[in-house]
Design a protein around this nucleic acid. Structure first.
Lengths: 148, 148
DNA sequence: TTTGAAATCGCGTATTT
DNA sequence: AAATACGCGATTTCAAA
Protein backbone atom coordinates (compact mmCIF):
# COMPACT_ATOMS: atom_id res chain seq x y z
CA UNK A 1 0.00 0.00 0.00
CA UNK A 2 3.11 2.17 -0.06
CA UNK A 3 2.17 4.14 -3.13
CA UNK A 4 3.73 7.52 -3.54
CA UNK A 5 3.05 8.30 -7.15
CA UNK A 6 5.48 10.72 -8.72
CA UNK A 7 5.22 12.55 -12.01
CA UNK A 8 6.77 9.68 -13.94
CA UNK A 9 4.28 7.20 -12.53
CA UNK A 10 1.40 9.53 -13.32
CA UNK A 11 2.44 9.81 -16.94
CA UNK A 12 2.97 6.06 -17.20
CA UNK A 13 -0.48 5.42 -15.71
CA UNK A 14 -2.02 7.89 -18.11
CA UNK A 15 -0.46 6.14 -21.09
CA UNK A 16 -1.44 2.67 -19.91
CA UNK A 17 -5.02 3.75 -19.30
CA UNK A 18 -5.18 4.89 -22.90
CA UNK A 19 -3.43 1.87 -24.33
CA UNK A 20 -2.56 -1.05 -22.10
CA UNK A 21 -0.55 -2.61 -24.92
CA UNK A 22 1.93 0.20 -25.39
CA UNK A 23 5.44 -1.24 -25.21
CA UNK A 24 7.62 -0.29 -22.28
CA UNK A 25 10.20 1.04 -24.69
CA UNK A 26 7.63 3.35 -26.28
CA UNK A 27 6.47 4.52 -22.85
CA UNK A 28 10.08 5.17 -21.94
CA UNK A 29 10.48 7.31 -25.03
CA UNK A 30 7.53 9.46 -24.01
CA UNK A 31 8.45 9.88 -20.35
CA UNK A 32 12.21 10.03 -20.92
CA UNK A 33 13.15 6.90 -19.05
CA UNK A 34 14.84 3.69 -20.15
CA UNK A 35 12.81 0.58 -20.89
CA UNK A 36 14.02 -1.28 -17.76
CA UNK A 37 13.19 1.74 -15.61
CA UNK A 38 9.68 1.81 -16.98
CA UNK A 39 9.29 -1.94 -16.53
CA UNK A 40 10.36 -1.72 -12.90
CA UNK A 41 7.94 1.13 -12.20
CA UNK A 42 5.07 -0.78 -13.82
CA UNK A 43 5.96 -3.87 -11.82
CA UNK A 44 5.76 -1.85 -8.60
CA UNK A 45 2.49 -0.19 -9.63
CA UNK A 46 1.03 -3.61 -10.28
CA UNK A 47 2.14 -5.27 -7.08
CA UNK A 48 1.11 -2.29 -4.95
CA UNK A 49 -2.41 -2.49 -6.39
CA UNK A 50 -2.36 0.86 -8.17
CA UNK A 51 -2.80 -1.00 -11.44
CA UNK A 52 -5.67 -3.40 -10.84
CA UNK A 53 -5.46 -5.16 -14.16
CA UNK A 54 -5.66 -4.79 -17.90
CA UNK A 55 -9.01 -5.08 -19.64
CA UNK A 56 -10.16 -5.20 -23.22
CA UNK A 57 -12.96 -2.71 -23.86
CA UNK A 58 -15.68 -4.40 -25.89
CA UNK A 59 -18.57 -2.86 -27.85
CA UNK A 60 -21.81 -4.07 -26.20
CA UNK A 61 -23.50 -4.08 -29.60
CA UNK A 62 -21.34 -7.06 -30.55
CA UNK A 63 -23.43 -9.02 -28.05
CA UNK A 64 -26.69 -7.60 -29.32
CA UNK A 65 -27.11 -4.91 -26.68
CA UNK A 66 -28.74 -1.99 -28.42
CA UNK A 67 -29.61 0.13 -25.39
CA UNK A 68 -28.24 1.25 -22.06
CA UNK A 69 -30.24 2.41 -19.06
CA UNK A 70 -29.59 3.80 -15.62
CA UNK A 71 -31.89 2.22 -13.08
CA UNK A 72 -32.31 3.44 -9.52
CA UNK A 73 -33.95 1.36 -6.83
CA UNK A 74 -35.51 2.60 -3.62
CA UNK A 75 -34.48 -0.55 -1.84
CA UNK A 76 -36.64 -1.91 0.89
CA UNK A 77 -34.64 -2.84 3.91
CA UNK A 78 -33.42 -6.42 4.02
CA UNK A 79 -33.91 -7.16 0.35
CA UNK A 80 -30.59 -8.54 -0.81
CA UNK A 81 -30.11 -7.43 -4.37
CA UNK A 82 -26.38 -7.98 -4.23
CA UNK A 83 -26.45 -11.56 -5.38
CA UNK A 84 -28.88 -10.85 -8.21
CA UNK A 85 -26.77 -7.96 -9.35
CA UNK A 86 -23.50 -9.85 -9.49
CA UNK A 87 -25.07 -12.76 -11.32
CA UNK A 88 -27.05 -10.83 -13.95
CA UNK A 89 -25.00 -10.33 -17.15
CA UNK A 90 -26.99 -7.22 -18.05
CA UNK A 91 -26.03 -5.26 -14.93
CA UNK A 92 -22.52 -4.00 -15.59
CA UNK A 93 -22.21 -1.34 -12.86
CA UNK A 94 -23.98 -1.23 -9.49
CA UNK A 95 -23.53 1.02 -6.48
CA UNK A 96 -25.09 1.40 -3.09
CA UNK A 97 -25.49 5.13 -2.53
CA UNK A 98 -26.75 7.56 0.05
CA UNK A 99 -30.15 9.16 -0.31
CA UNK A 100 -33.67 8.23 -1.22
CA UNK A 101 -32.61 5.65 -3.78
CA UNK A 102 -30.26 3.25 -2.10
CA UNK A 103 -29.02 1.71 -5.31
CA UNK A 104 -28.09 2.87 -8.79
CA UNK A 105 -27.00 0.63 -11.63
CA UNK A 106 -26.07 0.67 -15.28
CA UNK A 107 -27.88 -1.91 -17.36
CA UNK A 108 -27.55 -3.24 -20.91
CA UNK A 109 -30.58 -4.44 -22.88
CA UNK A 110 -31.05 -5.82 -26.34
CA UNK A 111 -34.38 -4.00 -26.85
CA UNK A 112 -37.24 -2.45 -24.94
CA UNK A 113 -38.90 -5.79 -24.22
CA UNK A 114 -35.71 -7.06 -22.73
CA UNK A 115 -35.40 -3.88 -20.67
CA UNK A 116 -38.92 -4.33 -19.40
CA UNK A 117 -38.19 -7.88 -18.28
CA UNK A 118 -35.14 -6.62 -16.39
CA UNK A 119 -37.13 -3.87 -14.70
CA UNK A 120 -39.80 -6.37 -13.70
CA UNK A 121 -37.18 -8.52 -12.06
CA UNK A 122 -35.62 -5.57 -10.25
CA UNK A 123 -38.99 -4.48 -8.92
CA UNK A 124 -38.73 -7.40 -6.53
CA UNK A 125 -36.13 -5.43 -4.60
CA UNK A 126 -37.94 -2.10 -4.38
CA UNK A 127 -39.53 0.54 -6.54
CA UNK A 128 -37.42 1.30 -9.59
CA UNK A 129 -36.83 4.42 -11.61
CA UNK A 130 -35.45 3.97 -15.11
CA UNK A 131 -33.69 6.50 -17.32
CA UNK A 132 -32.65 5.44 -20.79
CA UNK A 133 -29.21 6.58 -21.90
CA UNK A 134 -29.41 8.79 -24.98
CA UNK A 135 -25.78 9.82 -25.23
CA UNK A 136 -22.62 8.64 -23.52
CA UNK A 137 -20.39 11.67 -23.29
CA UNK A 138 -17.68 10.01 -21.23
CA UNK A 139 -17.23 6.43 -20.13
CA UNK A 140 -14.23 5.44 -18.07
CA UNK A 141 -12.24 8.62 -18.51
CA UNK A 142 -8.51 8.33 -17.91
CA UNK A 143 -7.92 9.08 -14.24
CA UNK A 144 -5.60 12.03 -13.62
CA UNK A 145 -4.94 14.19 -10.58
CA UNK A 146 -7.73 16.58 -9.50
CA UNK A 147 -7.86 19.95 -11.21
CA UNK A 148 -7.88 21.73 -7.87
CA UNK B 1 -18.61 -3.95 -39.79
CA UNK B 2 -19.44 -7.56 -40.60
CA UNK B 3 -19.25 -8.97 -37.11
CA UNK B 4 -20.86 -12.30 -36.59
CA UNK B 5 -19.53 -13.35 -33.23
CA UNK B 6 -19.36 -17.10 -32.79
CA UNK B 7 -18.75 -19.09 -29.63
CA UNK B 8 -14.98 -18.93 -30.06
CA UNK B 9 -15.06 -15.14 -30.34
CA UNK B 10 -17.28 -14.85 -27.28
CA UNK B 11 -14.91 -16.89 -25.19
CA UNK B 12 -11.92 -14.94 -26.47
CA UNK B 13 -13.66 -11.65 -25.65
CA UNK B 14 -14.53 -12.90 -22.21
CA UNK B 15 -10.91 -13.81 -21.50
CA UNK B 16 -9.53 -10.53 -22.85
CA UNK B 17 -11.99 -8.52 -20.79
CA UNK B 18 -10.70 -10.27 -17.68
CA UNK B 19 -7.05 -10.02 -18.64
CA UNK B 20 -6.02 -8.09 -21.71
CA UNK B 21 -2.46 -9.36 -21.32
CA UNK B 22 -3.24 -13.05 -21.62
CA UNK B 23 -1.03 -14.51 -24.33
CA UNK B 24 -2.64 -15.71 -27.53
CA UNK B 25 -1.14 -19.14 -26.93
CA UNK B 26 -2.76 -19.34 -23.50
CA UNK B 27 -6.09 -18.20 -24.92
CA UNK B 28 -5.75 -20.86 -27.59
CA UNK B 29 -5.21 -23.48 -24.92
CA UNK B 30 -8.45 -22.48 -23.21
CA UNK B 31 -10.59 -22.25 -26.33
CA UNK B 32 -8.90 -25.14 -28.16
CA UNK B 33 -7.45 -23.20 -31.04
CA UNK B 34 -3.88 -22.61 -32.19
CA UNK B 35 -2.05 -19.38 -31.44
CA UNK B 36 -2.23 -18.09 -35.06
CA UNK B 37 -5.95 -18.82 -35.17
CA UNK B 38 -6.50 -16.81 -31.99
CA UNK B 39 -4.31 -13.98 -33.26
CA UNK B 40 -6.26 -13.81 -36.49
CA UNK B 41 -9.60 -13.71 -34.67
CA UNK B 42 -8.38 -10.98 -32.35
CA UNK B 43 -7.12 -8.99 -35.31
CA UNK B 44 -10.56 -9.20 -36.91
CA UNK B 45 -12.31 -8.26 -33.66
CA UNK B 46 -10.06 -5.23 -33.36
CA UNK B 47 -10.44 -3.99 -36.91
CA UNK B 48 -14.21 -4.52 -36.90
CA UNK B 49 -14.48 -2.36 -33.78
CA UNK B 50 -15.73 -5.07 -31.45
CA UNK B 51 -12.59 -4.59 -29.37
CA UNK B 52 -12.32 -0.85 -28.80
CA UNK B 53 -8.99 -0.93 -27.04
CA UNK B 54 -7.04 -2.18 -24.08
CA UNK B 55 -7.02 -0.19 -20.86
CA UNK B 56 -5.19 -0.42 -17.58
CA UNK B 57 -7.58 -0.23 -14.66
CA UNK B 58 -6.18 2.14 -12.05
CA UNK B 59 -7.14 2.59 -8.40
CA UNK B 60 -8.48 6.15 -8.02
CA UNK B 61 -7.01 6.30 -4.51
CA UNK B 62 -3.54 6.36 -6.06
CA UNK B 63 -4.45 9.87 -7.24
CA UNK B 64 -5.85 10.86 -3.88
CA UNK B 65 -9.50 10.29 -4.72
CA UNK B 66 -11.12 9.04 -1.52
CA UNK B 67 -14.75 9.27 -2.55
CA UNK B 68 -17.05 8.62 -5.47
CA UNK B 69 -20.43 10.24 -6.08
CA UNK B 70 -23.25 9.97 -8.55
CA UNK B 71 -24.51 13.41 -9.51
CA UNK B 72 -27.68 14.05 -11.46
CA UNK B 73 -28.45 17.37 -13.08
CA UNK B 74 -31.83 18.70 -14.09
CA UNK B 75 -30.31 20.51 -16.99
CA UNK B 76 -31.80 23.74 -18.12
CA UNK B 77 -32.22 23.87 -21.82
CA UNK B 78 -29.37 25.35 -23.75
CA UNK B 79 -26.78 25.00 -21.01
CA UNK B 80 -23.91 23.18 -22.62
CA UNK B 81 -22.35 21.00 -19.95
CA UNK B 82 -20.68 18.75 -22.51
CA UNK B 83 -17.48 20.73 -22.75
CA UNK B 84 -17.15 21.12 -19.01
CA UNK B 85 -17.73 17.42 -18.53
CA UNK B 86 -15.11 16.26 -21.01
CA UNK B 87 -12.52 18.64 -19.62
CA UNK B 88 -13.02 18.01 -15.91
CA UNK B 89 -10.70 15.23 -14.66
CA UNK B 90 -13.07 14.37 -11.81
CA UNK B 91 -15.99 13.42 -14.06
CA UNK B 92 -15.19 9.96 -15.31
CA UNK B 93 -18.61 8.91 -16.65
CA UNK B 94 -21.37 11.12 -18.02
CA UNK B 95 -24.63 10.33 -19.78
CA UNK B 96 -27.54 12.26 -21.18
CA UNK B 97 -30.64 10.36 -20.17
CA UNK B 98 -34.40 10.52 -20.54
CA UNK B 99 -36.55 11.77 -17.70
CA UNK B 100 -36.61 14.57 -15.18
CA UNK B 101 -32.84 14.65 -14.78
CA UNK B 102 -31.31 15.03 -18.19
CA UNK B 103 -27.82 14.13 -17.08
CA UNK B 104 -26.19 11.66 -14.73
CA UNK B 105 -22.49 11.41 -14.02
CA UNK B 106 -19.96 9.58 -11.91
CA UNK B 107 -17.55 11.85 -10.11
CA UNK B 108 -14.34 11.34 -8.14
CA UNK B 109 -13.40 13.62 -5.25
CA UNK B 110 -10.50 13.76 -2.85
CA UNK B 111 -12.68 14.80 0.10
CA UNK B 112 -15.98 16.44 0.92
CA UNK B 113 -14.68 19.96 0.36
CA UNK B 114 -13.51 18.97 -3.07
CA UNK B 115 -16.89 17.37 -3.76
CA UNK B 116 -18.62 20.54 -2.68
CA UNK B 117 -16.54 22.64 -5.06
CA UNK B 118 -17.45 20.28 -7.90
CA UNK B 119 -21.15 20.47 -7.05
CA UNK B 120 -20.97 24.25 -6.95
CA UNK B 121 -19.49 24.30 -10.41
CA UNK B 122 -22.09 21.88 -11.75
CA UNK B 123 -24.91 23.99 -10.34
CA UNK B 124 -24.21 26.41 -13.17
CA UNK B 125 -25.83 23.93 -15.52
CA UNK B 126 -28.96 23.14 -13.54
CA UNK B 127 -30.08 21.92 -10.16
CA UNK B 128 -27.99 18.99 -8.99
CA UNK B 129 -28.75 15.96 -6.88
CA UNK B 130 -25.80 14.16 -5.33
CA UNK B 131 -25.62 10.63 -3.97
CA UNK B 132 -22.36 9.46 -2.40
CA UNK B 133 -21.25 5.96 -3.33
CA UNK B 134 -21.02 3.74 -0.26
CA UNK B 135 -20.25 0.44 -1.96
CA UNK B 136 -19.31 -0.49 -5.49
CA UNK B 137 -20.79 -3.93 -6.06
CA UNK B 138 -19.89 -4.14 -9.72
CA UNK B 139 -17.85 -1.85 -11.94
CA UNK B 140 -17.31 -2.71 -15.57
CA UNK B 141 -18.57 -6.26 -15.45
CA UNK B 142 -17.37 -8.51 -18.25
CA UNK B 143 -19.89 -8.26 -21.06
CA UNK B 144 -21.50 -11.58 -21.99
CA UNK B 145 -24.64 -12.48 -23.94
CA UNK B 146 -27.99 -11.68 -22.29
CA UNK B 147 -29.37 -14.26 -19.89
CA UNK B 148 -32.68 -14.31 -21.75
C1' DT C 1 21.80 -12.01 -23.89
C1' DT C 2 18.32 -15.07 -23.52
C1' DT C 3 13.54 -16.13 -23.19
C1' DG C 4 9.07 -15.86 -24.70
C1' DA C 5 5.21 -13.93 -27.38
C1' DA C 6 3.20 -12.41 -31.74
C1' DA C 7 3.34 -11.85 -36.86
C1' DT C 8 4.21 -14.26 -41.10
C1' DC C 9 4.18 -18.06 -44.40
C1' DG C 10 3.00 -22.19 -46.71
C1' DC C 11 0.08 -26.08 -46.50
C1' DG C 12 -4.06 -28.95 -45.57
C1' DT C 13 -9.12 -29.41 -44.93
C1' DA C 14 -13.94 -28.43 -45.18
C1' DT C 15 -17.65 -26.05 -47.17
C1' DT C 16 -19.83 -23.54 -51.07
C1' DT C 17 -21.10 -22.79 -55.71
C1' DA D 1 -14.00 -28.78 -60.05
C1' DA D 2 -12.91 -24.24 -58.34
C1' DA D 3 -13.07 -20.92 -54.94
C1' DT D 4 -13.45 -19.46 -50.34
C1' DA D 5 -12.64 -19.59 -45.60
C1' DC D 6 -10.36 -21.25 -41.77
C1' DG D 7 -7.13 -23.62 -38.90
C1' DC D 8 -2.48 -25.69 -38.12
C1' DG D 9 2.69 -26.20 -37.71
C1' DA D 10 7.07 -24.09 -38.50
C1' DT D 11 9.82 -20.05 -38.63
C1' DT D 12 11.09 -15.30 -38.13
C1' DT D 13 10.82 -10.99 -35.73
C1' DC D 14 10.49 -8.31 -31.83
C1' DA D 15 9.84 -7.04 -27.01
C1' DA D 16 10.75 -8.03 -22.04
C1' DA D 17 13.37 -10.15 -18.19
Amino acid sequence: MNSKIDQFDQKILSLLQQDARMSHAEIGRQVHLSQPAVSERIRRLESSGVIRGYRAEVDPKAFGYQMTAMIRISTQQGRPYTQYVTQSPEIIDCYTVTGEDGCVMKVLATDVEHLQRLINQLNAFGSTSTAIVLTTHVNGKVITPPSV
